[in-house]
Design a protein around this nucleic acid. Sequence first.
DNA 1: ATCCTCCCCTAC
DNA 2: TAAGGTAGGGGAGGAT
Length: 1140
Amino acid sequence: MNSRSSSRAASNAAAFPSSSAPSGDSRKRSRNPPTTNPQRPLRSKTKAPFADFRSYMVEKNRKLRAQFQADATTSSLGAGSGRADSGDDKGIFHGVSIFVDGFTIPSSQELRGYMLKHGGRFENYFSKHTVTHIICGNLPDSKMRNLRAFSHGLPVVRPQWVLDCLAANGLLSCAPYQLGGLVNGTCKQQKLSTYFHHQGISSCNDARTTVNQDVKIDVDPKQLVLPPEGQCFRCDGPSGQATEELECMKVEKLYGEINANPESTDLEVKFSVPPASGAIPSPLSMINKSYMGHQKIHESLDSSVNCIGASNQVHSTLTDPNFVENYFKSSRLHFIGTWRNRYRKRFSNLLTGYKSSNEKTNCCVAKQKASIIHVDMDCFFVSVIIRNFPDLVDKPVAVCHSNNPRGTAEISSANYVARNYGVKAGTFVRDAKACCPHLVILPYDFEAYEEVAEQFYSILHKHCSKVQALSCDEAFLDVTGCDDDPEEIASMIRKEIEDTTRCTASAGIAGNLLLAYLATRSAKPNGQRFIPSEKVEDYLKDLPVMALPGIGYATYEKLKSRQIQTCGQMYMIPKEALQKDFGIRIGDMLWNYCRGIDNRTVEVVQERKSVGAEVNWGIRFNNLTDCHHFLVNLCKEVSLRLQGCGLQGRAITLKVKKRKKGAAKPLKFMGCGDCESVSRSITVPVATDNVVALQRIAKQIFASFHVDVKEVRGIGLHMTKLESSDISRKGHVDNALESWLSSSTVDTGKKSEQITCADKQCDNGGLPLPNGEPQSRCIYGSNQQDLGKSKSLCDSDTGYNCLPDKDARCCRSYEMRASALPRLCDLDIDVVKDLPRDIVLEMDDIYEGELSDLIRKSEKKGSRSSSCSSSVSLPNEDTNVIDGYIASGHVDSPELDLGAKDKGKLPVRESVERTCLKIQSHNSCSRLNELHITSTMGPQQLMPASLSQADASVLEQLPEDVKADICGFLPVHRKIKVCKDVPFGFDVPNSVKHSSPWYTKSYLWLGSPPFWVEKFKISNSYFLNAIAMLYAESGKDILLSSILQSITPLLSSVSESSCEEYDEALHSLHEVISQYIVLKIGSDVEELYNCFCFLKRFSTVSKLLLRVYNSTLPLFQASMSEIYGGKLRLSVIREKPGEE
DNA sequence: ATCCTCCCCTAC
DNA sequence: TAAGGTAGGGGAGGAT
Ligand SMILES: Nc1ccn([C@H]2C[C@H](O)[C@@H](COP(=O)(O)OP(=O)(O)OP(=O)(O)O)O2)c(=O)n1
Ligand SMILES: [Mg+2]
Ligand SMILES: [Mg+2]
């Protein structure tokens, strides 16, 4: 709506200069008429302050719970199989689920840790359904009252309770620790008057000198479509002349606290009434308290013990180490952007059974004309809040974070009175105040929006089974074939919505989605409208093109430049012309829409194609460390979201907004301003939700942008190429498969720990804290406390990084599990039949018995379903490369252990290996195709092109022999470049990093031909000589796997070699392959896998190759684990006695 | 032709 | 002060 609002202006007579429209600060138009009117801030709040945004995030809770459990798993792994608690198997806090409100000592992270260790749960967001105890250090009086009201009787307990329970090693009664007496009657809380005073002053001072001269009322072509028919606008409540006393009482009642401070009396409540008239505190004060006040209040209360010293300003990455989370808590766009996901979960039961319905609907359509209803709540965010202010219904009201008449906070929603003044979503509050000096600003209440949306959809689903959710306040219903009259259905629905929610909705009824949508627009507010097909042409004739969905500011401008402003005008343009100017699809859409044609159908379920998180506000960095810290948090966010919906992705896209050269200060406070944005994606061969993998890749991409971190204004991370996080392997069936597989190997706890260590480094951005820099420069981990905190974060992070929670995956809905398996037709039935019976049964369960049907059929017919054939030449025994991958994220899988103690079981393992491979063949094929593409992008982007980018000073510190090696191989013309001090951005797995920089581990692969070729040529080993020759003959850039594939004829030379030559060959091949792993692990796992398959194949004829295989496999697997969170089904080969 | 990546545009 | 997100559609242009 932002960009659109500018064009709305343009569409009106009062258009602002078009030059300012796509102004640098593109997200926002640049018009900013200042204005005034002393606006007495109202003080208000409708709900418990502590609950604010948190409780609505049911989904997030669930995700976090999953993480928590993963943490718990990790920690119990770390502590052996047992737990810290004595006696009680389930832990001290079994059954306890805490929510930590605000600042506490110990910190919420520590409390989380205690819960984790001792069987309890930790909720990141409050929900009366999941939380058993609210842990709270201290609270101001008013908050306490609200807290009581909304804590649903849950005990609000001081953190000491947790500590004492731990000390007592048992669950103590929380009664003595309950908060209540503690804060009652104290006057410690911040006086609201302070806030009001500020507001009052700024409004009063801000005189009217500059007012109005260019304040224009925009008429929104998307809003005022046509004169509405049959709409009825109702004005509830007393007729606008409410007395101040009344208002005061109301507010007092609502908030249970009224500030008697005389200062507050200068606050204006009644907009149209002069300042003296009223004393209603601003609702904004509640924003201050409930959304951002927490920290301040706690800090002032706990200043004596507060060692963190966090800044009061928690509104940028400069000051808030937890910015991602805090920002999202208050972001309206985040709320509406993530709403759909919560809806999916909340109504998943009702969304099942509806497949993407094209054919189905088409049959219906063929039979009879479709009947579509579009329902949309009227000025949703305002309506919900205004329920508590009945006297404001006929006043101009908007929802906004700020009431500052000079501020750049955005209006989220404005009621229809305010809209008449030109106030609308996206307007800066200062512009809104300029347009409408009496505008009343109300605060957000996300929890209430969530609640009303739920009621809204419950009603819709009650009346109609085909509901497509468009947003939290808007849906399409397909009532085709319903007996009742669509208009009556709409009417009933609207009535029930109003009765239930005390908010009004409008509805449009028509023959397709487009017309229903448009009808709603002209019915608003609180009306409904039916557009019969014979009226369509009339309706569209003069409709501004901007009113059509899909036509926003840019398209509008483009059309305008072609003299097309109404649908009637567009009607005259041939389809071909539109397609030429706007592209095939968009041209087609334009042509159809201006005729009222819309072939879309109501889709109850929509498959998700991407998952991402983005922040473009408050982003300011002073150093790379802070930037990395932010990136890490963003990765955590995305990882959690992926896990929360059971998805993993293979393509990771990083988007960075960078201040444009010469760009002015952003129009919007802490905004991104005029930016150029870059994005780059990397596709990995294995879908992942692993936070470590994400972090590594995100950092790599970020480095490849070579941006000055001080110029960064926005960062986004998105996952695409999504796959279900494959329950067949990781959850349900996987449990059986996995345990069957693991029976042949031993536990890998040790390895997990190793990875844990690596992660800790990673969480610090993989960098040591800058020693030379003043500590204050780096806001994260800059003092003891923070270090401690970040360590505990690390611990818990690794938990969920490495051990995705199986329970969370198992509890996903049935259809998700089903879709996680390959399609039935892609199964190789012969292979399935070879599986252990319990596994087949489990699979059959998921396929609802169809699998056993298929098996029976195949036994009758002897037929096989086809499986994909690989396009790659691969070793025979592994028909499909990717199939070798096991689920990412499974550190606890057996593959990592290279001890291979159960040697006797190897053949069994191999058969299983192959069996599993074929089961996965469907997925694998599609992946294979892409692998070839992605492997071409390979490491070039990630690696320095040559040693020229290596840091000479680091080079200097290399062991002498390594240095000699490198320099010996360097062509003369490159030797100079080595000294160039250019940083690089490739991050090598910690497990392979050890002490030396990465390039000492892959220098053999630098150059063309790679240095190892030269080395092999001059080697004493004939075998190595031959390999070098082979490489030379094969041409440039041949893959190592191709060389290995053709290596057998050369093997004869090995048997004739001396001991020294043999050792040299072994050592050299080990080095070359090790470095190849380092080089390729981030870009071409398939190639590495191929190499190992060939080594494995030829290990039967060459002990040398067997040893090379065994000696390099650990590095490969460890690197796989670290980067992709999983290992390959490759294991060490037992060396049989015998001579080479 | 058909895929890909990197954008831009749109909606709430 | 203030919380400019999220996801889908699609076009341009390059690679195959
Ligand atoms: N730029 C925007 C657009 C919308 N919203 C939020 C506030 C709205 O209340 C809600 C629903 O969006 P609508 O487009 O349905 O707008 P309203 O419901 O507010 O008004 P209308 O009566 O036109 O539907 O989404 C927002 O915060 N910012
Ligand atoms: Mg609405
Ligand atoms: Mg809406």
